[in-house]
């Protein structure tokens, strides 16, 4: 399988070079979660990491986020290491589950990162109100997470991730636990927010249509061992802005088929 590389540009936000991740399973054998990953993400790009379970996509996201260290290779984020980027609070992270603190109100949940960064009370309040407005949850600021539906909770999670105005938004299958209707709504929300805020987004998913609809570029990963099978440019075929009607276009579905075929069987 050929090494897929892109030409280096000056506006590269995230650069992943020859990254491998191997760890020991319980019975002592080595598991190659990722082998020789090369990937570059430009500033303001929306990149999807797509693949079935076990292909290492969440592992790769965790490596970018400095939650894991690769056994080999380099990751450079905005000119520094992932650790530096994390310490400078350049990441916003959204998990598969909302991960809200149920002893705090919605507004206080959004203010959590701001508290950690020691913002003043009035600034925190102003910023969290603005973020809740961005995700259309202003009316629920004083509710508790348990009172909200799954989709609404996830929107709070997104508002929280954006609160410190990070350059990079890392999303690990954020919508996979939601029903189809909520998912579609949130697709529109996340595209709107992305257009407005111009963040770099790395979006992990196992849903091909979701990846095609949302992203500029899809990185297709195959498992055993985890590796890049293809990097597919979506903008060539589907221009921005994306609208829901595109999902019935022939071009859309041909692209979905192309992505599916680029998976390598074990």
């Amino acid at each position: 399988m050929e090494n897929i590389k892109e030409p280096v540009k000056n506006d590269i936000e995230i650069s992943i070079e020859n990254v491998s991740m191997t760890y020991q399973a319980d019975n002592g054998t080595d598991v190659k979660a990722l082998t020789d990953i090369n990937l570059q993400v430009k500033k303001g790009e929306f990149v999807a990491l797509l693949g079935p379970s076990g292909c290492g996509k969440s592992t790769l996201l965790n490596i970018i986020a400095d939650l894991l260290h690769p056994t080999e290779g380099n990751v450079i984020v905005g000119g520094t290491t992932p650790k530096d980027a994390r310490l400078k609070q350049r990441y916003g992270i959204v998990f598969q589950r909302p991960v809200l603190f149920d002893w705090r109100t919605v507004q206080k949940n959004v203010e959590l990162p701001l508290e950690i960064m020691k913002w003043k009370k009035e600034d925190r309040r102003e910023r969290s109100t603005k973020m809740l407005g961005l995700v259309n949850l202003s009316d629920f600021a004083n509710h508790y997470p348990q009172q909200l539906s799954g989709g609404m909770q996830q929107r709070v999670g997104i508002a929280r991730a954006l609160a410190i105005n990070p350059e990079i938004l890392l999303m690990d299958e954020p919508f996979s636990a939601l029903d189809e209707f909520t998912k579609e709504k949130l697709h529109e929300d996340i595209l709107r927010i992305w257009r407005k805020t111009h963040k770099t987004v790395v979006f992990v998913t196992h849903n091909i249509q979701e990846a095609v609809y949302l992203s500029d570029k899809i990185v297709v990963l195959s498992p055993h061992p985890g590796r890049v099978s293809a990097i597919i440019d979506v903008n060539e075929t589907l221009p921005r802005p994306r609208v829901p009607e595109m999902k019935t276009d022939v071009a859309f579905n041909q692209l979905v088929l192309k992505v599916r075929n680029s998976f390598e069987e074990v």
Binding site: L87, K88, Y91, I93, F95, V99, P113
Partner: peptide
């Protein structure tokens, strides 16, 4: 406390 909650705090360098 779930791993994700701890990861969240870690992400914000708390």
């Amino acid at each position: 406390v779930s791993t994700e909650q701890k990861q969240l705090m870690f992400n914000y360098a708390a």
